[in-house]
Design a binder for these strands. Structure first.
Length: 417
RNA sequence: CGGAGUGUAGUUCAGAUGGUAGAACACACGGUUCGGGACCGUGAGGUCGUGGGUUCAAGUCCCGCCACUCCGACCA
């Protein structure tokens, strides 16, 4: 991608918002605020979201998930069956109505909808298990949006639902997803600070499990056991729970964290409410066992910025960075330097290295470096009159740069990715 | 949902007591610069959130509405 064509260009780091993620993502041109708590994904932001999605998708497919997309318009009757149409029970509803007056809801979750749909396709134990997932926009009428894209009214979520014939197959799958989730957070770069956290489980199981990433901007307070690599949400912390999990209060550390994912077992309650049953081998009618698994994709992007930035901008982990390489061409009014920069750019493109090439002739070095730091691609290459036949190589998270030959740059980049 | 605040140029903001609409940054053009967001000159850019009211006269005063920001509560 040529910087001269990039839409939109980052802005000079000016306005500060209520959080680092909002400040850098908005000034950097990754997202655009449409209204309070509602953000459009601009080209740079979309690239990151797509990378996070790809990482999540790979793991979901690996555990047997099949991708689909449900709708945002939902029937009222669906939610009345589980008593969640009521604004007293669910306070985040956006509701509207059709021309003929029929009331509809805008999807804040898809659990009811997918489960209801399953009635059309699941009648026998032979049809199970089924695991489906989607990346879908959730619409939630939050009383107050805050913390940039960490708590919005419209956001992208990866949600998966599992339908099993027995508690055993469900539990086995649940554990597989739990492991898959840890890999996902590892692979997006949050592994070191993301903890499997015991949280309230609702009616069916004692616990649900959250994936909490340590950050001061997080809304949750959790108690961390670093050695065991687990945590307990404050909402369920009791003496009984601690002894059950084999931990002492003395080993727990109180920290703030942001919930990036959660998984929970719903048992058969919802299936019974909605009427999702199957016939087992003996012809006996049984309710399907349901599990629900979510990851806040756009929230993950926000948490990444919270974790990985300095005062100049973002420092994306390689796996999710918009481009692997930020190539800065200086002194481009000199034809021979311009030729070298162009040929390196073409060589990188040819080798399918993701590269953003700052090809602007009229912009000075300082501004180009500032833009590179704000956007936060992991490797910065510079070609200028100072670099001679070589190329300056610097990582975003390091101070020192080094000069390398073009061939070495190319082979290092192709090797890495 | 309680409390507080703010809406004026693309952006951030200034415009006491009513009297012809301002700056900085950004932008366009010309010039000097050229490795960490340079500088000089010129220029373009506005239904002052919106509807009503008071007044000879409203960005400014009064009332309604809308939006945004922050604090709190909420976040199964």
């Amino acid at each position: 991608m040529r910087y001269s064509k990039l839409f939109p260009k980052p802005q000079k780091l000016g306005k500060e918002y209520d959080s680092a993620n909002a400040t850098f993502l908005i000034n950097g041109g990754f997202i655009h605020q449409e209204m309070a708590g509602v953000y459009a994904l601009l080209p740079l932001g979309l690239r990151i979201v797509e990378k996070i999605k790809a990482i999540a998708r790979k793991e979901m497919v690996a555990v047997g998930g099949q991708e689909l997309i449900m709708t945002s318009l939902q029937r009222k009757e669906l939610w009345e069956k589980t008593d969640r149409w009521n604004d007293e029970k669910v306070d985040v509803w956006f509701k509207s109505h059709l021309k003929n007056g029929t009331e509809i809801g805008l999807a804040w979750s898809h659990e009811e909808q997918i489960t209801e749909m399953m009635k059309n396709y699941v009648t026998s134990y032979r049809d199970l298990p089924v695991r489906v997932f989607q990346f879908q926009t959730k619409l939630r009428n939050e009383l107050r949006a805050k913390s940039g894209i960490l708590r919005g009214r419209e956001f992208l979520m990866k949600d998966m639902y599992s339908y099993s014939t027995s508690e055993e197959t469900h539990t086995k799958f649940y554990d597989e997803v739990s492991q898959a989730y840890l890999r996902i957070f590892e692979n997006v770069g949050l592994g070191a600070d993301t903890y499997l956290t015991f949280a309230s489980g609702g009616a069916f199981t004692q616990f649900s499990h959250e994936f909490q990433t340590l950050t001061d901007i997080g809304e949750d307070v959790i108690y961390l056991h670093r050695q065991k690599k687990i945590a307990i949400n404050k909402e369920v912390l009791t003496q009984e729970v601690m002894s059950q999990l084999g931990v002492n209060q003395a080993d727990l550390e109180e920290v703030r964290a942001a919930e990036v994912g959660n998984i929970f077992s719903c048992g058969s309650t919802k299936s019974e409410q909605l009427g999702l049953f199957f016939n087992d081998e003996s012809g006996q009618k049984k309710p399907v066992i349901l599990g629900s698994y979510g990851i806040g994709i756009t929230r993950v992007m926000g948490v990444l910025v919270e974790k990985f930035h300095d005062d100049r901008g973002i420092m994306w982990p390689e796996q999710v960075a918009p481009y692997q390489v930020h190539l800065v061409g200086l002194d481009l009014h000199d034809d021979s330097i311009k030729k070298r920069a162009e040929s390196l750019y073409e060589a990188l493109v040819k080798r399918e290295v993701e590269v953003l090439f700052d090809d602007r002739e009229e912009v000075r070095a300082g501004e180009k470096f500032a833009d590179a730091d704000l956007i936060g691609n992991p490797i910065r290459l510079v070609i200028s009159k100072r670099t001679g036949e070589q190329v300056e190589w610097k990582r975003r998270n390091e101070k020192e740069s080094q000069l390398k030959m073009v061939d070495a740059v190319l082979s290092d980049l192709v090797k890495n990715y």
